[in-house]
Every structure is written in C-alpha cells, then in structure tokens.
Simulated scan of single mutants.
Amino acid sequence: MHALVVDDSRAMRRIVAGILTNLHFETAEADNGATALAELEQLTAADTVPQLACIDWNMPVMDGLQLVSAIRADRRWRDITLMMVTTESEHGQIVRALAAGAHEYLIKPFTADAMADKLRYLGLVPAGVGA
C-alpha cells in the first residue's frame, strides 16, 4: 500500500513516514498542499495513487484543509483515505476537517500505537500488525 505524508516539518514527515513504513506502507512526502497535489499528479500518472494521505493542517502555500478540499474535488482521488495529523485540537477545527472530507483526525503529539490504531479503525492496517 502507498501513503503520502504532507507536513511542512521535515522531522515530522520522517516520523510519520517511519511509522507508516513499519506498518508496511510505501511512502512519498510533500512539504505543503501545493507540493502534495503535484506529487499526487505524478503518482497518478505512474498508476500508484496512494490509499492514504496523512496531512498536517498548518503549512505555507496551501494548508491542509485546502488540500483536503482539493483532493475531494478531484474524482481520481476520491478513494484516498485522508487523515489529518495536526496540533489543531479545537473541536471546531476537527469538525471542519471532517466536513471537508477527512476520514480521521490524529492530534500531535501522538504515539506510533495511536497512529496504528487509527489506521486499523480505517481498515488500512490488519489486526496484529504493530507499529
């Protein structure tokens, strides 16, 4: 399975990608929403549309909420599971993200087990596969 990790923090991209790699995902990375859309275009052209995108909210150029809306507006990407991975913990922000089309929401800081649990809930990680 493939995943796209979108975060302006290189360290956070590495952490999330490491967790996903341990869960048997192949990962690609982007540092903001606009870069993520370009990466999705390339992955789509290579016939490797990711099953999952882990998206930070606060990024320059195009933020995570704008990215979620852009992905949901493109038919080619309607099957990508979108999970916000962000410090935004206000209830209103969570509601906005879910209303825009995110499937799940993980608040930073988090543990590898917490991410694995969310992905199990979404049906993307089989039971017994640990972080």
Rank of each mutant, 00 (worst) to 15 (best):
A116N: 09
G101K: 08
M1C: 08
I71H: 06
K118E: 04
L106N: 06
L98G: 09
V85I: 06
M12R: 02
L37E: 06
S9T: 09
C54V: 02
R72G: 00
L20G: 07
T21P: 14
H91V: 01
A28W: 11
F25Q: 08
D117Q: 12
G130E: 14
R10S: 10
A116G: 10
H103G: 12
T35K: 10
L52A: 09
W57R: 00
L122T: 05
Y121L: 04
I94Q: 15
A17F: 01
T86N: 09
L43G: 13
T81P: 10
L124Q: 05
T44N: 05
R78L: 05
D74I: 03
G18I: 01
G33M: 14
A11M: 08
V49D: 05
T44D: 10
L23I: 14
I19Q: 04
A131K: 06
P126N: 00
Q66F: 04
A38M: 12
A3C: 12
M62L: 11
L40A: 01
L37Y: 02
A34M: 02
E39L: 01
A131E: 02
D113W: 02
N58I: 13
A53E: 06
E88T: 07
A127D: 11
S9L: 08
H91C: 01
A28Q: 13
I19V: 14
L65K: 10
G123D: 03
Y105I: 07
V16D: 08
R14S: 14
A100Y: 04
A116I: 11
L20H: 03
V95G: 03
K108E: 02
A70P: 11
T27Q: 12
L98V: 08
H2E: 07
I19E: 06
A116Y: 07
D117K: 12
F110Q: 04
Y105V: 07
P126D: 01
A70V: 15
G128N: 01
A53H: 08
M83C: 15
L4K: 11
D8E: 07
L67D: 01
L40H: 01
G130T: 12
N32G: 13
L122C: 06
R76E: 03
E29H: 05
E88M: 08
E90A: 15
I71Q: 08
E41W: 03
S69M: 14
A73D: 14
A11N: 04
S69Q: 15
V95M: 09
S89G: 11
I55Y: 13
D31C: 07
A36P: 12
Y121F: 05
R72H: 00
G128W: 03
L106W: 09
I94M: 15
L4V: 05
T86A: 09
V6Y: 15
S9F: 07
K108V: 05
M59H: 08
A112T: 09
A45F: 09
D31E: 14
I55E: 10
D79N: 15
L20T: 03
A38I: 12
G101D: 01
L119H: 10
P109Q: 14
R75M: 07
G128E: 01
A102N: 06
